[in-house]
Amino acid sequence: MTRSLRIYREAYLKALENKSPADQKRITARFLSRLVRDRALSKIGQIEKGIRRAHMKNSGRSEIAVESAAQLDPKYRGELERMFGTRALIRETVNPDLVAGARILVDDELLINATGKRFLNDMFAPSHHL
């Protein structure tokens, strides 16, 4: 029987608490075989993402993905660190498709989109209500 992602995630994280690395390995193996039995192995990617997110949250850290049209100026990087704190895990990528500016994704949930691409899309968006 397939359970919700949250149940799998929480059960796995709880089982790992205060366990030695060897035990953690055994628990992970058992967890994977459980997923196979439940025919839920296809959800492993989402479970892993959820676990990573929960782990970051529990440790008080946040994950910041910065995508910019050109290499980010070190001055702006420092500004980002000040804004999100030193415990933030900042990952940078360059995507010339963005035309100009950058977009910042916080914890895979909150998007601050300050790119030229978005600006152009908004300007030329069709006026109908779709």
Binding site: K49, D108, E109, L110, I112, A114, F119, D122
Partner: peptide, 25 residues
């Protein structure tokens, strides 16, 4: 342009097909 800048909650497509999509978030 800057005036319009806002933070938006987003989701991610985790599954798509047959005219439907499942979105995380």
């Amino acid at each position: 342009f800057r005036k319009n800048l806002k933070a938006e909650k987003i989701g991610r497509v985790i599954e798509v097909g047959d005219g439907i999509a499942r979105i995380y978030g």
